[in-house]
Protein backbone atom coordinates (compact mmCIF):
# COMPACT_ATOMS: atom_id res chain seq x y z
CA UNK A 1 0.00 0.00 0.00
CA UNK A 2 1.56 3.30 -0.94
CA UNK A 3 0.78 6.70 0.41
CA UNK A 4 -1.41 7.75 -2.48
CA UNK A 5 -3.53 4.67 -2.14
CA UNK A 6 -3.84 5.19 1.57
CA UNK A 7 -5.18 8.65 1.10
CA UNK A 8 -7.48 7.53 -1.66
CA UNK A 9 -8.96 4.96 0.70
CA UNK A 10 -9.15 7.65 3.33
CA UNK A 11 -11.00 10.01 1.07
CA UNK A 12 -13.35 7.24 0.02
CA UNK A 13 -14.25 6.53 3.60
CA UNK A 14 -14.79 10.25 4.06
CA UNK A 15 -17.25 10.11 1.24
CA UNK A 16 -19.00 7.27 3.00
CA UNK A 17 -19.12 9.07 6.30
CA UNK A 18 -20.56 12.23 4.85
CA UNK A 19 -22.90 10.20 2.66
CA UNK A 20 -26.34 11.48 2.02
CA UNK A 21 -25.35 14.89 0.78
CA UNK A 22 -26.80 14.29 -2.63
CA UNK A 23 -27.28 16.86 -5.29
CA UNK A 24 -30.39 18.97 -5.11
CA UNK A 25 -32.85 18.24 -7.83
CA UNK A 26 -36.15 19.80 -8.68
CA UNK A 27 -38.85 18.09 -6.73
CA UNK A 28 -41.96 17.24 -8.61
CA UNK A 29 -44.71 16.15 -6.29
CA UNK A 30 -45.89 13.17 -8.23
CA UNK A 31 -42.39 11.82 -8.63
CA UNK A 32 -41.64 12.09 -4.93
CA UNK A 33 -39.26 10.85 -3.65
CA UNK A 34 -36.55 11.73 -6.15
CA UNK A 35 -33.63 11.70 -3.71
CA UNK A 36 -32.68 9.91 -0.49
CA UNK A 37 -34.66 10.78 2.62
CA UNK A 38 -32.85 11.85 5.77
CA UNK A 39 -33.93 10.10 8.95
CA UNK A 40 -32.93 12.04 12.05
CA UNK A 41 -32.18 9.87 15.08
CA UNK A 42 -31.95 12.11 18.16
CA UNK A 43 -29.69 9.60 19.95
CA UNK A 44 -26.07 8.52 19.53
CA UNK A 45 -25.26 5.56 17.33
CA UNK A 46 -25.63 2.33 19.26
CA UNK A 47 -28.65 1.70 21.44
CA UNK A 48 -32.05 0.28 20.70
CA UNK A 49 -33.71 3.24 19.01
CA UNK A 50 -30.74 3.82 16.73
CA UNK A 51 -30.97 0.15 15.83
CA UNK A 52 -34.63 0.53 14.90
CA UNK A 53 -33.64 3.29 12.47
CA UNK A 54 -30.84 1.27 10.96
CA UNK A 55 -33.13 -1.70 10.54
CA UNK A 56 -35.58 0.43 8.57
CA UNK A 57 -32.71 1.86 6.52
CA UNK A 58 -32.17 -1.64 5.26
CA UNK A 59 -35.67 -2.15 3.78
CA UNK A 60 -36.40 1.44 2.70
CA UNK A 61 -35.37 1.24 -0.93
CA UNK A 62 -37.77 -1.60 -1.57
CA UNK A 63 -40.87 0.31 -0.46
CA UNK A 64 -40.09 3.92 -1.17
CA UNK A 65 -37.89 3.68 -4.23
CA UNK A 66 -35.33 5.79 -2.42
CA UNK A 67 -32.81 5.16 0.30
CA UNK A 68 -33.24 6.37 3.85
CA UNK A 69 -30.10 7.84 5.35
CA UNK A 70 -29.78 7.76 9.13
CA UNK A 71 -28.30 10.90 10.70
CA UNK A 72 -27.55 10.76 14.41
CA UNK A 73 -28.01 14.10 16.18
CA UNK A 74 -27.67 13.16 19.85
CA UNK A 75 -27.74 15.19 23.02
CA UNK A 76 -29.90 17.43 25.17
CA UNK A 77 -32.22 14.55 26.09
CA UNK A 78 -32.99 14.16 22.35
CA UNK A 79 -34.19 17.75 22.02
CA UNK A 80 -31.36 18.77 19.70
CA UNK A 81 -32.38 16.18 17.15
CA UNK A 82 -36.05 17.04 17.48
CA UNK A 83 -35.32 20.75 17.08
CA UNK A 84 -33.49 19.89 13.89
CA UNK A 85 -36.46 17.80 12.77
CA UNK A 86 -39.11 20.37 13.68
CA UNK A 87 -37.13 23.10 11.94
CA UNK A 88 -36.49 21.10 8.78
CA UNK A 89 -38.17 22.01 5.53
CA UNK A 90 -41.47 20.09 5.41
CA UNK A 91 -40.84 18.70 1.94
CA UNK A 92 -40.91 15.04 2.85
CA UNK A 93 -37.15 14.63 2.64
CA UNK A 94 -36.52 14.90 6.37
CA UNK A 95 -38.22 12.53 8.76
CA UNK A 96 -37.23 11.49 12.24
CA UNK A 97 -37.59 9.08 15.09
CA UNK A 98 -40.06 10.43 17.61
CA UNK A 99 -41.00 9.02 20.95
CA UNK A 100 -42.86 9.45 24.18
CA UNK A 101 -40.29 11.85 25.52
CA UNK A 102 -40.96 14.29 22.67
CA UNK A 103 -44.18 14.87 24.60
CA UNK A 104 -42.41 14.97 27.96
CA UNK A 105 -39.63 17.45 27.25
CA UNK A 106 -41.79 20.53 26.52
CA UNK A 107 -43.51 19.99 29.86
CA UNK A 108 -40.29 20.85 31.69
CA UNK A 109 -39.90 24.33 30.29
CA UNK A 110 -38.84 26.06 27.16
CA UNK A 111 -37.85 23.89 24.21
CA UNK A 112 -37.24 25.60 20.90
CA UNK A 113 -40.33 23.98 19.38
CA UNK A 114 -43.44 22.66 21.02
CA UNK A 115 -43.03 19.13 19.71
CA UNK A 116 -46.59 17.92 20.30
CA UNK A 117 -47.75 20.48 17.73
CA UNK A 118 -44.60 21.04 15.67
CA UNK A 119 -44.18 17.38 14.78
CA UNK A 120 -46.54 15.00 13.13
CA UNK A 121 -46.59 11.30 14.03
CA UNK A 122 -46.78 8.80 11.14
CA UNK A 123 -46.33 5.25 12.40
CA UNK A 124 -45.54 3.67 15.74
CA UNK A 125 -42.93 0.93 15.59
CA UNK A 126 -42.26 -0.21 19.12
CA UNK A 127 -43.76 0.18 22.57
CA UNK A 128 -41.71 -1.00 25.54
CA UNK A 129 -43.18 -0.98 29.06
CA UNK A 130 -41.46 0.37 32.15
CA UNK A 131 -40.54 -2.27 34.71
CA UNK A 132 -39.29 -2.06 38.30
CA UNK A 133 -36.20 -4.15 39.05
CA UNK A 134 -34.53 -5.12 42.33
CA UNK A 135 -31.56 -7.37 43.04
CA UNK A 136 -32.59 -10.98 43.57
CA UNK A 137 -31.08 -11.13 47.07
CA UNK A 138 -33.41 -8.38 48.31
CA UNK A 139 -36.31 -9.55 50.48
CA UNK A 140 -39.07 -7.94 48.41
CA UNK A 141 -40.96 -10.46 46.31
CA UNK A 142 -43.26 -8.02 44.56
CA UNK A 143 -44.17 -4.36 44.33
CA UNK A 144 -46.46 -4.56 47.36
CA UNK A 145 -43.65 -5.85 49.60
CA UNK A 146 -41.34 -3.16 48.32
CA UNK A 147 -43.81 -0.34 48.71
CA UNK A 148 -44.83 -1.47 52.20
CA UNK A 149 -41.19 -1.35 53.17
CA UNK A 150 -40.78 2.05 51.54
CA UNK A 151 -43.78 3.36 53.46
CA UNK A 152 -42.38 2.18 56.77
CA UNK A 153 -38.88 3.41 55.97
CA UNK A 154 -39.35 6.68 54.13
CA UNK A 155 -36.38 7.67 51.96
CA UNK A 156 -34.51 4.44 52.53
CA UNK A 157 -35.21 2.99 49.10
CA UNK A 158 -33.05 4.72 46.51
CA UNK A 159 -34.16 4.15 42.96
CA UNK A 160 -32.06 4.80 39.89
CA UNK A 161 -33.09 6.15 36.51
CA UNK A 162 -31.18 7.44 33.48
CA UNK A 163 -31.76 11.17 34.02
CA UNK A 164 -34.18 13.58 35.62
CA UNK A 165 -37.39 13.88 33.65
CA UNK A 166 -36.81 10.73 31.58
CA UNK A 167 -39.64 8.24 31.20
CA UNK A 168 -37.98 5.94 33.74
CA UNK A 169 -37.94 8.75 36.29
CA UNK A 170 -41.59 9.49 35.56
CA UNK A 171 -42.41 5.81 36.10
CA UNK A 172 -40.64 5.85 39.46
CA UNK A 173 -42.47 8.93 40.65
CA UNK A 174 -45.78 7.50 39.43
CA UNK A 175 -45.21 4.40 41.53
CA UNK A 176 -44.24 6.47 44.55
CA UNK A 177 -47.21 8.79 44.13
CA UNK A 178 -49.85 6.12 43.68
CA UNK A 179 -48.67 4.21 46.74
CA UNK A 180 -47.86 7.17 48.93
CA UNK A 181 -44.38 5.76 49.60
CA UNK A 182 -41.37 8.04 49.74
CA UNK A 183 -38.41 6.84 47.71
CA UNK A 184 -35.30 8.87 46.89
CA UNK A 185 -34.41 9.17 43.22
CA UNK A 186 -30.82 8.86 42.01
CA UNK A 187 -30.16 10.13 38.49
CA UNK A 188 -27.56 8.35 36.35
CA UNK A 189 -26.16 9.08 32.94
CA UNK A 190 -27.86 6.32 31.05
CA UNK A 191 -29.39 2.96 31.75
CA UNK A 192 -26.09 1.06 31.78
CA UNK A 193 -24.70 3.15 34.65
CA UNK A 194 -27.91 2.77 36.64
CA UNK A 195 -27.97 -0.99 36.07
CA UNK A 196 -24.34 -1.28 37.19
CA UNK A 197 -25.23 0.55 40.41
CA UNK A 198 -28.20 -1.75 40.98
CA UNK A 199 -26.18 -4.92 40.39
CA UNK A 200 -23.48 -3.60 42.71
CA UNK A 201 -26.05 -2.98 45.43
CA UNK A 202 -25.51 0.77 45.54
CA UNK A 203 -29.17 1.44 44.85
CA UNK A 204 -32.08 -0.81 45.75
CA UNK A 205 -34.43 -0.32 42.84
CA UNK A 206 -34.34 0.82 39.28
CA UNK A 207 -36.86 1.57 36.57
CA UNK A 208 -35.82 0.02 33.29
CA UNK A 209 -37.18 -1.71 30.19
CA UNK A 210 -37.41 -5.45 29.51
CA UNK A 211 -34.71 -5.72 26.78
CA UNK A 212 -31.92 -4.49 29.06
CA UNK A 213 -33.01 -6.66 31.99
CA UNK A 214 -33.89 -9.91 30.28
CA UNK A 215 -30.51 -11.66 30.49
CA UNK A 216 -30.01 -10.66 34.11
CA UNK A 217 -33.47 -11.95 34.97
CA UNK A 218 -32.74 -15.22 33.19
CA UNK A 219 -29.51 -15.65 35.12
CA UNK A 220 -31.34 -15.05 38.40
CA UNK A 221 -29.42 -11.96 39.42
CA UNK A 222 -32.38 -9.62 39.51
CA UNK A 223 -36.09 -9.76 40.19
CA UNK A 224 -38.73 -7.74 38.39
CA UNK A 225 -41.38 -6.64 40.89
CA UNK A 226 -43.81 -4.94 38.58
CA UNK A 227 -44.56 -4.09 34.99
CA UNK A 228 -46.44 -0.94 33.97
CA UNK A 229 -48.87 -2.49 31.47
CA UNK A 230 -52.54 -3.52 31.50
CA UNK A 231 -51.79 -7.19 30.87
CA UNK A 232 -48.79 -9.29 31.78
CA UNK A 233 -46.08 -9.51 29.15
CA UNK A 234 -46.24 -12.44 26.74
CA UNK A 235 -42.49 -13.06 26.70
CA UNK A 236 -42.05 -16.27 28.74
CA UNK A 237 -39.18 -14.73 30.72
CA UNK A 238 -41.47 -11.96 31.98
CA UNK A 239 -44.84 -13.71 31.89
CA UNK A 240 -44.93 -14.47 35.62
CA UNK A 241 -44.15 -10.89 36.58
CA UNK A 242 -47.31 -9.25 37.97
CA UNK A 243 -48.43 -5.91 36.58
CA UNK A 244 -48.52 -2.94 38.90
CA UNK A 245 -52.24 -2.82 38.35
CA UNK A 246 -52.89 -6.30 39.73
CA UNK A 247 -50.92 -5.28 42.82
CA UNK A 248 -53.15 -2.28 43.36
CA UNK A 249 -50.64 0.27 42.11
CA UNK A 250 -52.21 2.22 39.30
CA UNK A 251 -49.25 2.80 37.00
CA UNK A 252 -49.31 2.43 33.21
CA UNK A 253 -46.35 3.64 31.21
CA UNK A 254 -44.76 2.45 28.00
CA UNK A 255 -41.96 3.99 26.00
CA UNK A 256 -43.07 4.08 22.43
CA UNK A 257 -41.11 5.11 19.39
CA UNK A 258 -42.07 5.62 15.80
CA UNK A 259 -41.47 7.81 12.80
CA UNK A 260 -42.73 11.32 12.24
CA UNK A 261 -41.95 14.50 10.37
CA UNK A 262 -42.21 18.26 10.74
CA UNK A 263 -45.76 19.52 10.41
CA UNK A 264 -46.89 20.88 7.07
CA UNK A 265 -45.77 18.32 4.52
CA UNK A 266 -47.97 18.64 1.40
CA UNK A 267 -50.74 16.00 1.26
CA UNK A 268 -49.41 14.15 -1.80
CA UNK A 269 -45.96 13.63 -0.30
CA UNK A 270 -47.38 12.87 3.11
CA UNK A 271 -49.64 10.07 1.98
CA UNK A 272 -46.84 8.56 -0.06
CA UNK A 273 -44.48 8.75 2.88
CA UNK A 274 -46.99 7.24 5.29
CA UNK A 275 -47.79 4.44 2.87
CA UNK A 276 -44.08 3.79 2.41
CA UNK A 277 -43.36 3.72 6.14
CA UNK A 278 -46.34 1.47 6.73
CA UNK A 279 -45.04 -0.98 4.16
CA UNK A 280 -41.53 -0.85 5.64
CA UNK A 281 -42.62 -1.47 9.21
CA UNK A 282 -44.81 -4.36 8.11
CA UNK A 283 -42.13 -5.84 5.88
CA UNK A 284 -41.47 -9.38 7.17
CA UNK A 285 -37.72 -8.79 7.00
CA UNK A 286 -37.98 -5.70 9.18
CA UNK A 287 -40.22 -7.54 11.63
CA UNK A 288 -37.86 -10.50 11.92
CA UNK A 289 -34.86 -8.26 12.39
CA UNK A 290 -36.60 -6.28 15.10
CA UNK A 291 -37.73 -9.48 16.78
CA UNK A 292 -34.13 -10.67 16.80
CA UNK A 293 -32.97 -7.54 18.57
CA UNK A 294 -35.54 -8.12 21.30
CA UNK A 295 -37.92 -5.36 20.24
CA UNK A 296 -40.99 -6.90 18.64
CA UNK A 297 -42.82 -4.49 16.35
CA UNK A 298 -46.00 -3.00 17.80
CA UNK A 299 -47.33 -1.28 14.77
CA UNK A 300 -49.84 1.54 14.90
CA UNK A 301 -51.03 3.26 11.74
CA UNK A 302 -51.08 7.01 11.26
CA UNK A 303 -54.56 7.53 12.68
CA UNK A 304 -54.18 5.44 15.81
CA UNK A 305 -50.70 6.80 16.42
CA UNK A 306 -51.96 10.38 16.17
CA UNK A 307 -54.72 9.52 18.60
CA UNK A 308 -52.17 8.10 21.05
CA UNK A 309 -50.01 11.20 20.55
CA UNK A 310 -52.87 13.40 21.66
CA UNK A 311 -54.06 11.21 24.56
CA UNK A 312 -50.58 10.68 25.96
CA UNK A 313 -49.80 14.35 25.59
CA UNK A 314 -52.64 15.21 27.96
CA UNK A 315 -52.02 12.29 30.27
CA UNK A 316 -48.27 12.98 30.67
CA UNK A 317 -48.91 16.67 31.33
CA UNK A 318 -51.11 15.68 34.24
CA UNK A 319 -48.62 13.08 35.50
CA UNK A 320 -45.57 15.35 35.59
CA UNK A 321 -47.67 17.94 37.39
CA UNK A 322 -49.13 15.53 39.96
CA UNK A 323 -45.81 13.84 40.69
CA UNK A 324 -44.12 17.20 41.11
CA UNK A 325 -41.43 16.46 38.51
CA UNK A 326 -42.26 19.55 36.47
CA UNK A 327 -42.12 21.68 39.57
CA UNK A 328 -38.86 20.13 40.70
CA UNK A 329 -37.15 20.91 37.40
CA UNK A 330 -38.72 24.36 37.19
CA UNK A 331 -37.43 25.17 40.69
CA UNK A 332 -33.90 24.30 39.71
CA UNK A 333 -34.11 26.59 36.73
CA UNK A 334 -34.66 29.60 38.95
Amino acid sequence: MNVGLLFLVGLLSLGLLTGGCSLQSNTVANQYPTKPITLIVPFAAGGSVDMMARTIEKVALRHLGQAIVVTNIPGGAATIGWNELAGAKPDGYTIGVIGMSSLLQPLYGETRYHYPTALEPFVQVISIPAIAVVRADQPWKDARDLLDYAQQHPGEIKYGHPGLGTGNHVAGEMVALSSGAHMAQVPFKGEADALAALLGGHIQLMFATPPSIKEHLKSGKVRVVGVATEQRLTDPVFSNVPTFKEQGVDVLLSFWYGFGAPKGIPEAEKSKLIAGLQAMVNDPEFKTNMEKSGMPVEYLGAQEFQQKWITDSGRLAKIVKDTGIAERIANQKK
Binding site: T79, L164, T166, K333
Partner: peptide, 8 residues
Protein backbone atom coordinates in the same frame (compact mmCIF):
# COMPACT_ATOMS: atom_id res chain seq x y z
CA UNK B 1 -24.98 21.25 28.61
CA UNK B 2 -28.15 19.54 29.70
CA UNK B 3 -27.46 18.03 33.09
CA UNK B 4 -29.06 14.67 33.62
CA UNK B 5 -28.86 15.11 37.38
CA UNK B 6 -31.04 18.21 37.50
CA UNK B 7 -32.77 18.12 34.13
CA UNK B 8 -31.70 21.65 33.37
Amino acid sequence: GLDSLTGI
